[in-house]
Deep mutational scan, measured.
Amino acid sequence: NITNLCPFDEVFNATRFASVYAWNRKRISNCVADYSVLYNFAPFFAFKCYGVSPTKLNDLCFTNVYADSFVIRGNEVSQIAPGQTGNIADYNYKLPDDFTGCVIAWNSNKLDSKVGGNYNYLYRLFRKSNLKPFERDISTEIYQAGNKPCNGVAGFNCYFPLRSYGFRPTYGVGHQPYRVVVLSFELLHAPATVCGPKKST
């Protein structure tokens, strides 16, 4: 009989979020998941679920829940969905086509923008091939755009693969920082350890 609540607040209220190319993952297990707390949290810009209804989450049990978190621009949030393409979905964070879970995003301009620009948040701009679902690539190898080998030196046709967002408070909404948490639900042939409040007695 599990009684402790799942530590969703640790994920959602973290002081610093990860850059999207180096997205953070927390495994959540052996706890009671009260999703209504999240669902009623006012400032969400997006709360979209795939393969599961957000209002039914509290009735369900899962083997594991993974909480992935990172920061992207407002106009990139739409790429955090199954079957998407674009710089983020291709080179930074890719969801599987059969994704079961929820994508939760909110504007973090007050936290993550600075006058003069916040350059701490990076994304991958160049990559030889697209990421596989949930693949994480933190390499900083110089990207070779031409035929000539770069030998690890940036220059003509040789690019550092990461780019900084440089968030400023005055940017338009599409270019403002958004914090994103992706909850993915794993249902294995194993005992369920993460259940909603109704199922955990």
Rank of each mutant, 00 (worst) to 15 (best):
N109Y: 07
E141P: 03
R16F: 04
N75S: 01
Y123S: 03
G155A: 05
L5T: 08
P177A: 04
G117L: 00
P54Q: 10
A42L: 08
K148D: 08
F156H: 02
G166I: 03
N130K: 11
N151M: 04
K128N: 10
P191H: 05
R27Y: 12
D90Q: 02
Y178M: 04
K110P: 06
I2P: 15
F134C: 01
K128W: 12
A190Y: 01
V37E: 13
L187I: 10
F45T: 10
L122S: 14
P191V: 06
P197Y: 06
Q84T: 08
Y121C: 00
K148G: 06
K128A: 04
K199D: 10
P161A: 06
P191A: 14
N87A: 14
F160A: 12
T170F: 11
A192R: 05
V65L: 01
A154N: 07
T170A: 00
V173T: 06
P197T: 10
F44K: 13
G166H: 02
Y119V: 12
T100N: 02
N40Q: 09
N24S: 02
W106I: 02
A46H: 11
S36H: 07
A33P: 13
T170P: 00
I80V: 13
A154V: 12
N120T: 00
L125I: 09
G174L: 08
A67C: 01
P54M: 11
N64E: 12
T193F: 14
N151W: 05
V194Q: 12
T55L: 08
S139Q: 15
V173H: 15
N1T: 07
T55I: 08
T63H: 01
Y178H: 01
S69T: 01
S113G: 04
Y159H: 07
Y39F: 08
S53L: 04
F45Q: 10
Y91M: 04
N151H: 10
V32C: 13
F44R: 02
A105S: 10
T100M: 10
L5W: 04
S29M: 05
V52T: 07
K110S: 04
E141S: 07
Y39K: 15
K128P: 03
N24R: 08
L5N: 14
N118P: 00
P197R: 12
N40K: 01
N147P: 02
D9M: 13
T85K: 14
S19D: 01
V115L: 11
L131I: 07
N64A: 15
K110N: 05
V115Q: 00
S53I: 14
V32M: 08
P197L: 14
V173P: 13
R16S: 06
G116A: 01
L122K: 14
A192Q: 15
Y39H: 10
N151I: 05
T201L: 12
E10K: 14
L187Y: 07
K110I: 11
P197M: 10
T170Y: 05
K56H: 09
Y178T: 06
R73T: 02
T55M: 06
P191R: 09
S184T: 12
P54D: 04
T55W: 03
D90S: 15
G83C: 01
K199F: 10
G152H: 15
K26R: 11
Q144N: 08
P191E: 06
E186K: 14
Q144G: 12
N151E: 05
N64F: 07
S29R: 15
L122Q: 01
D9I: 03
N24G: 02
Q84S: 02
H175N: 13
P149H: 06
E135D: 10
N58V: 02
Y143L: 06
D9N: 07
G83Q: 10
S29Y: 09
S164Y: 00
A190G: 12
P197C: 11
V37A: 15
S129T: 06
F41D: 11
Y123Q: 05
Y39I: 07
T170N: 02
P197G: 05
K148Q: 12
K128Y: 00
A192D: 13
N107S: 02
N120K: 03
A190W: 05
P149R: 11
S29N: 02
D9Q: 10
G166Q: 08
N130D: 12
T140S: 12
L188F: 03
Y121A: 00
A81G: 00
T15A: 06
A89P: 13
F134G: 07
G152C: 03
F160N: 04
T85V: 08
N109A: 10
G152I: 02
F156P: 11
S164E: 06
P43D: 09
F134R: 06
T201K: 11
V115E: 00
G83K: 04
G196I: 09
R27Q: 13
S200L: 09
F44Y: 09
Y66V: 06
G51N: 03
K48N: 15
F17W: 14
K128T: 14
H189Y: 12
A154P: 07
T201I: 08
G155Q: 15
L187D: 02
T55Y: 03
P43E: 05
R16W: 11
T140M: 06
P169G: 00
L5M: 15
F156M: 14
N87T: 14
S184R: 07
P54T: 11
Y35G: 11
R16C: 10
P43H: 12
